[in-house]
């Protein structure tokens, strides 16, 4: 049986692995290294040999505890290669200038977690990765990506004014913002929603935040009730500032989004 995790959540309860991860770990613990190595490189979930990333993290941490240098040096590169594959879709080459450097930085910093791992001490960060690897990994990579975005010119800047006169009407943009984030998820809707999100991502950060807080999350711009959480309180500004940012954002989006997209 796998060693219990020691990290606790905000309510003081121990984090626990999902049942499917526990099963996979139990099945893997008795296997020889060549078999584990072969399985660790399977990425199709439907394959019975598939080892989820949560399981791979656990195995490497066990090798670390046993001071098995050879096993660590064998399996950690496999984990890093699978992470690199994820990063190539999350930080593609056309997303940021020098995206390859950003991916390399993320992998380098991530590898240090395994060197510093000490379940008996304070460094138990890897417990998160044994529970929900993808959610933990996005927590890790996003600050590095945001820092890189802030340091670099945005790859997709706002386009010049559309001379064809086919900008979207402001009202249509507002309508689309309201509808897109309320519809149930379908394949067509995903493509349309993702297009809208990519357009929002090109806005200055404060405008993107205002749009998403109000239209995705559904917060009010401001409230007379001081105990209510609003876009203004979350951003630490006044309601008027939020409205100004929304106005600039919608104007910018009307130039980015093509009128014919409304017909989907």
């Amino acid at each position: 049986m796998a060693r219990a995790l020691t990290k606790k959540d905000q309510d003081g309860n121990l984090y626990t692995r999902p049942a499917f991860v526990e099963e996979k770990i139990d099945g893997a613990l008795g296997q020889d290294l060549p078999t584990l190595l072969r399985r660790s490189q399977v990425t199709q979930k439907s394959n019975p040999d598939f080892l989820p990333l949560e399981c791979l993290v656990h195995l490497i941490r066990e090798f670390r505890r046993q001071d098995d240098q050879h096993a660590m040096s064998t399996f950690l590169p496999v984990l890093l290669r699978r992470c690199e594959s994820i990063l190539k879709s999350k930080v593609p080459d056309d997303y940021l200038p020098m995206a390859e450097d950003v991916r390399e930085e993320i992998l380098g910093e991530f590898s240090l977690l395994f060197a510093e791992d000490n379940p008996q001490g304070a460094t138990t960060e890897l417990d998160y990765y044994e529970c929900k690897f993808f959610h933990a990994f996005r927590t890790f990579r996003m600050p590095i990506i945001e820092r890189a975005r802030a340091e670099r010119e945005p790859l997709v800047s706002l386009p010049a004014e559309d001379k064809s006169g086919e900008e979207q009407d402001i009202g249509e943009v507002l309508s689309r913002l309201s509808e897109e984030f309320r519809q149930p998820a379908t394949q067509i809707h995903h493509a349309s929603r993702n297009e809208l999100l990519r357009a929002i991502e090109t806005l200055p950060r404060d405008q993107a935040k205002a749009v998403l807080l109000c239209y995705f999350f559904g917060f009010s711009e401001e409230s007379e009730d001081p105990s209510e959480t609003t876009a203004a309180t979350l951003c630490g500004v006044t309601g008027r500032t939020i409205r100004n940012r929304l106005g600039r954002a919608v104007n910018a989006l009307s130039k980015i989004l093509k009128k014919e997209d409304l017909c989907q």
Binding site: R138, M142, E146, N194, L197, R198, I200, A208, K209
Partner: peptide, 8 residues
């Protein structure tokens, strides 16, 4: 906000 934008 970053998580939502990352969905794209």
């Amino acid at each position: 906000v970053s998580i939502v934008l990352d969905l794209a």
